[in-house]
């Protein structure tokens, strides 16, 4: 177990989401939601892993579209299909919406009063599933080759002067 900074959580989740094939814009939403959850004392890393493990395709099952819809309308929006209840709370919570469990699923609403910002925490302990995120993130890295090493960064090999 290591202590992670919140920025590490966010950037790793974004990369992992890209590694799972999601658009960068969608990945950014998941990254900021995971960070927001961690700041609020919830397990944002597990939520991200739970959601990304279930993603199959373009991420439509995350509930992000419902959050967009709720932001664009005054009415509550019902979400009946989602892959991670906690991540859905994060996606909604970080933009000031509340998510409430109802009979048919989860309702996203504007809060009656302004939500309190989550407390600042400096670090979070890495849970066992952290390595899964890292593995997905690593799927965005290009294996090195001699051509890449020499030309890709455009630098001289030594600077001994």
């Amino acid at each position: 177990m290591i202590e992670l900074s919140l920025n590490e959580v966010e950037t790793t989740v974004v990369k992992a989401a890209c590694g799972r094939g999601l658009d960068h814009g969608v990945a950014t939403e998941i990254g900021t939601a995971a960070r927001w959850l961690c700041e609020a004392g919830h397990d944002g890393i597990e939520a991200a892993v739970e959601a990304l493990a279930a993603v199959d395709g373009d991420g439509g099952e995350l509930g992000l579209a419902a959050v967009d819809l709720a932001l664009a309308s005054e009415e509550p929006v019902l979400v009946s299909d989602y892959v991670s209840r906690t991540l859905l709370a994060g996606l909604a919570g970080r933009v000031g919406l509340v998510s409430v469990d109802v009979d048919d699923g989860v309702e996203l609403r504007r809060p009656a009063e302004l939500a309190v910002s989550p407390a600042q925490v400096a670090t979070v302990a890495s849970p066992p599933c952290w390595s899964e995120l890292q593995d997905w993130a690593a799927q965005t890295y290009v294996p090195s080759s001699e051509q890449s090493r020499v030309a890709g960064a455009g630098a001289g090999l030594t600077d001994n002067d």
């Binding site: 960068h24 965005t140 090195s144 080759s145 051509q147 890449s148 090493r149 890709g152 960064a153």
Partner: peptide, 25 residues
């Protein structure tokens, strides 16, 4: 792209190098 070698940011040639499917946005 990001190289797996110490995650160094690099620039490649889409027509002669591998990895374009992993390009950064």
């Amino acid at each position: 792209y990001t190289s797996e070698e110490k995650l160094e940011p690099r620039l490649g040639d889409r027509f002669t190098e591998e990895g374009a499917e992993l390009e950064r946005p």
